[in-house]
């Protein structure tokens, strides 16, 4: 479960390129983009990683070994039966898709089996979501604000939720590979 905003595409490419393909998890990404843009992120990340990366479709089951990107203009949520759903409810922190919406529903669905990763960004989206992930027993990884292209978002999450690990990108990648293997 990875959320990113301003400066996010480059950071997401770094993470996806560094993730081992043999770890038995699904990766779900939200990046703030304009609502009227096409699905640009999934082909971009598909090319730059060993993972098949597609735009999430409503009602489909989440499969391990795949990475999914929230479609522009929609909130992406996870139901308890671990299928995707979408919503066009109002923007959260000026954002749709919102990281909070994904993280909070994912915390309800996955509980302790969830790792939330929050990267660079220019607003406070993701902070409330991180808080909920930790309350549900999940793990919070936050990019070190000093390492982020825009520090506001990781800093807001650190302030509200704290983190199990706050580190630069390469260390987050290493931690993800380690955690998801065991």
């Amino acid at each position: 479960m990875i959320g990113a905003s301003a400066g996010g595409p480059a950071a997401l490419q770094t993470i996806m390129a560094g993730l081992h393909a043999d770890i038995h998890v699904a990766v779900i990404l939200v990046v703030h983009v304009r609502a009227d843009t096409e699905d640009l992120m999934s082909p971009l990340l598909d090319r730059s990683s060993k993972w098949p990366v597609t735009t999430a479709r409503e009602r489909t089951r989440i499969e391990p070994g795949h990475a999914y990107v929230a479609p522009p203009g929609y909130h992406l949520l996870i139901e308890r039966d671990r299928r995707f759903s979408l919503s066009v409810d109002k923007r959260i922190s000026f954002s749709r898709p919102s990281i909070d919406v994904l993280f909070e529903s994912a915390a309800d669905a996955y509980g302790a089996n969830l790792v939330g990763v929050l990267l660079t960004g220019a607003n406070a989206d993701g902070a409330a979501g991180m808080k909920r992930i930790r309350e549900a027993g999940g793990t919070a990884l936050i990019q070190d604000p000093a390492d982020a292209a825009v520090p506001i978002m990781p800093q807001a999450a650190l302030d509200m939720a704290g983190a199990d690990l706050c580190a630069p990108l390469p260390e987050l990648v290493a931690a993800l590979n380690r955690m998801c293997r065991t």
């Binding site: 949520l77 308890r80 529903s105």
Partner: peptide, 9 residues
Amino acid sequence: YNRASLTRR
């Protein structure tokens, strides 16, 4: 109704 969005509302 799908529970995730309903719960949010």
